[in-house]
Amino acid sequence: MAAPLLEIQGLKTFFFTRKGVVKAVDGVDLSLNEGETLGLVGESGCGKTVTALSIMRLISEPIGRITEGSINFEGKDLVAATESEMRKIRGNRISMIFQEPMTSLNPVLKVGDQISEAIQLHQDVSKKEAWDRSIEMLRLVGIPSPESRVNEYPHQMSGGMRQRVMIGMALSCHPKLMIADEPTTALDVTIQAQILDLINRLKERVGSAILLITHNLGVVAEVAQYVGVMYAGYIVEYADVITLFKEPRHPYTVGLFQSIPKKKGSAKRERLQAIPGLVPDLLELPKGCKFQDRCSRVFQRCREEAPLLLKLNGSHQVRCWLYE
């Protein structure tokens, strides 16, 4: 098999705050092949966004820093890339859409200008061509009468429309990888389905791989081929989507599935919750397994030694001493 498009190994991103070191990402290993979709799941605050921003190298320095690990993308280690190399990658080879469509677009620039700006930056086209391509992108993401809406400002659009604009912008340079950070969380339920559907269809068309970040297992089931489950900064389980749904191994993943009501159709809307206990304070992590305080199967070793990511069958990996 060819080398994966994106391969993250042992990634650690810390924030050196006044209160102490926040280990926001503390051991993330992921890999993603061309054209595939990888879901990254986990409770709020477990480090999903920081992982994504680390890939983009948009962590707010100097308080935030990638301290360890590598991010291989198209044969290049992004952790070691210079800022000017990253600028050629951002918005071009890797693009990103964010959780907050209401605030992610610049309020004083026309949406057309915001899209064509990226096109002009990365492709050798004239202003006029870039503008026309922006209209095309708006049409592609399903915005009615794009010729006139291209002239509008963000405040003239609804949240769903704005997220469509973001998607259009992200795909405008045909990136190899699109990172979608909870693209539907802030939207109405009906709009959520439309946006997911749109991402799925366009991905086929543009041929981009997608890193889909969500805290919603239903979303993962619908669009992803592979899933990484994150807990308190590290990956606790990684598998293809069928394996993960059929045979979840990590007690945390098992808990996630149990917390979803079994009724058909309602799963889509269910958010992760209902595992007793609290996420550990990232400033004061326990020795050993980070999940120990909430784990029903915890035993002596879990409190002494941090579990390693263990290989099961095929690509299935789990970070738990039960499977040693």
Partner: peptide, 14 residues
């Protein structure tokens, strides 16, 4: 510190 500045940087702008 606004979100749209992060978006602008994510586009690869200087």
């Amino acid at each position: 510190s606004k979100d749209y500045i992060r978006t602008a940087r994510a586009k690869g702008l200087s």
